[in-house]
């Protein structure tokens, strides 16, 4: 596959990629997005009705479209594991507290998982193909695979592809109880959220990130996961990668990444991206955004001074793994 990424729009706890300070690392157990000034991106009347998921999704989309120099894409493909949690929780709370009485439609209307992709289409007037993937830790990867499928049939078109997940007090609590996010006893990983959108096409342009391969797999055992990454590495001959980007989050589960850094990537400069965005199901979209940004503004902010051509990204969210092989062309 060859999918060219022409631009990125990122909203994250580390800020937005249209500022000089990106990525600004925050020290906290819960990394909420540093939201931008929406003034130039979303009409104020509409902004008031938007939940966080919708507004960060739309702002990230607008940023990536602007950077690519286009008003509207030909098609839209979005990955979101949890969808619009804030509106879902609002409607659920009212429904359960009010015993199914006196409910209003707004939150329900905006609670569907395709709200973000639908609202983008509405705002920019995009009548084209529009899909939303909701497959847990592979949601964003599948939105990318959909872009490949779409562009095979519609070569030359430009597709907006993004990953988005919001964190709410309810989801934070539920995932602390489930053992994922850091709780009062300091067990678990740093919680995160964010939106990262991209303009992608099958057309090569100088100074773009070209995605050459994405492998998604589930694994319940570290050896099985490592084996799968090794197969990916062989398939793509990536032993000589210039840089690897990983989803290490600084807890005991990092054995997987540690094993890779002492074997496959023992002499390869590394960027660990979850210190900036926290852990969430579509965090790989932040990682891709970080790579696109670094290609443009330099890898030196990550202490890497050599020229970067070949990048590998390895991430997992729970037992959902993905390996990405990219070339800077």
């Amino acid at each position: 596959m060859e999918l060219y990424i022409h631009s990125a729009g990122i909203i994250s706890a580390a800020g937005s990629n249209n500022t000089d300070t990106f990525p600004a690392r925050q020290e906290a157990d819960v990394l909420y997005c540093a939201e931008p000034d929406y003034k130039d991106m979303i009409p104020p009347m509409q902004l008031r009705r938007m939940s966080k998921a919708v507004r960060i999704g739309i702002a990230a989309s607008k940023m990536s479209l602007q950077q690519a120099g286009i008003e509207k894409p030909d098609a839209i493909s979005v990955g979101t594991a949890m969808g619009c949690l804030q509106d879902t929780e609002f409607f659920l709370t009212k429904m359960t507290e009010q015993e199914e009485q006196m409910l209003t439609p707004t939150a329900f209307i905006q609670s569907t998982h395709n709200t973000v992709s639908g609202q983008i289409a509405l705002l920019v007037g995009c009548y084209g193909h529009n899909l939303t993937y909701v497959h847990r830790g592979h949601s964003f990867e599948h939105a990318m695979i959909n872009a490949v499928l779409y562009l095979q049939e519609q070569p030359g078109e430009q597709m907006l592809v993004g990953g988005i997940d919001e964190l709410t007090t309810g989801s934070l609590k539920a995932m602390q109880l489930a053992g994922l996010y850091k709780d009062a006893n300091n067990n678990g990983v740093v919680a995160g959220e964010g939106a990262a959108f991209f303009v992608a096409s099958d057309t090569a342009v100088a100074n773009t990130v070209c995605i050459k391969d994405i492998d998604c797999f589930t694994a319940y055992d570290m050896q099985e996961a490592l084996q799968q990454v090794r197969r990916f590495a062989e398939r793509n001959a990536i032993a000589d990668a210039d840089c690897w980007v990983n989803g290490m989050h600084g807890d005991e589960r990092d054995g997987f990444y540690n094993a890779l850094s002492t074997s496959l990537f023992s002499n390869v400069p590394v960027i660990s991206f979850k210190q900036y965005c926290g852990e969430y199901a579509t965090a790989s979209s932040f990682a891709l955004g970080l790579i696109v940004d670094a290609m443009k503004n330099g890898f030196s902010k990550y202490g890497i001074d050599k020229s970067i051509r070949k990048v590998v990204m390895v991430n997992h969210y729970k037992h959902y793994y993905s390996c990405w092989y990219m070339k800077i062309v």
């Binding site: 969808g83 569907t112 998982h113 395709n114 992709s117 529009n130 899909l131 939303t132 993937y133 909701v134 497959h135 847990r136 592979h138 599948h142 998604c216 589930t218």
Partner: peptide, 11 residues
């Protein structure tokens, strides 16, 4: 099913 598995949600 251990190969490609996904979920779509477009209402």
């Amino acid at each position: 099913f251990s190969g490609f598995v996904t979920t779509i949600s477009t209402a």
